[in-house]
């Protein structure tokens, strides 16, 4: 179970540096990523080299994920909730979707951390438990919401 209690300022700075590095590169390719939300053939017809963009995204996301998991271990459901909420708010235009998705993820993790300290006075629950309590209902709501739309 992940916990923010393991984080320290040096670790934070390392993750922040990785985040800024990845964010700058992804932002520069935001339009290409938006094109890739359509279809590979469509994206290629718009001049996107889908193979190289996909390779770049896999490397960057692996880098970011590995840093986060390395320092605070895995915190589930962030990657499910944050992008879905962001998509509802700004659509799939990646110039807005990418930063908002990250921001929502950070806010949700911070709120879950606060909640993990407040549930039982004097005890800090692993943040993963709190995230699962919030994440599973949201996850189910997303699935059932989609089923209703079909």
């Amino acid at each position: 179970m992940g916990s923010l209690l393991k984080s320290t300022w040096p670790k934070f700075l390392i993750v922040a540096a990785a985040l800024v590095f990845c964010f700058i590169i992804l932002s520069r390719n935001a339009w290409k990523l938006t094109a890739m939300t359509l279809d590979d053939t469509k994206a290629r017809s718009l001049g996107v080299n889908t193979h190289s963009v996909r390779r770049m995204v896999i490397i960057l996301t692996s880098l970011l994920t590995s840093f986060a998991v390395c320092f605070v271990s895995s915190v589930g459901f962030v990657g499910i909730i944050a992008p879905h909420v962001a998509r509802q708010l700004v659509g799939e235009e990646q110039r807005f979707f990418l930063p908002l998705s990250g921001l929502i993820g950070a806010v949700v993790v911070s709120l879950a951390f606060v909640a993990s300290k407040l549930v039982i006075p004097g005890v800090v629950l692993p943040i993963g438990i709190v995230r699962a309590v919030i994440g599973i209902p949201v996850f189910l709501a997303i699935i059932f919401g989609r089923m209703r739309r079909l």
């Binding site: 938006t34 094109a35 659509g91 799939e92 235009e93």
Partner: peptide
């Protein structure tokens, strides 16, 4: 979920 404006903008990629 893109708007028509965003979709057409992609043509100027």
């Amino acid at each position: 979920s893109l708007t028509v404006l965003e979709m057409v903008l992609l043509g100027r990629l």
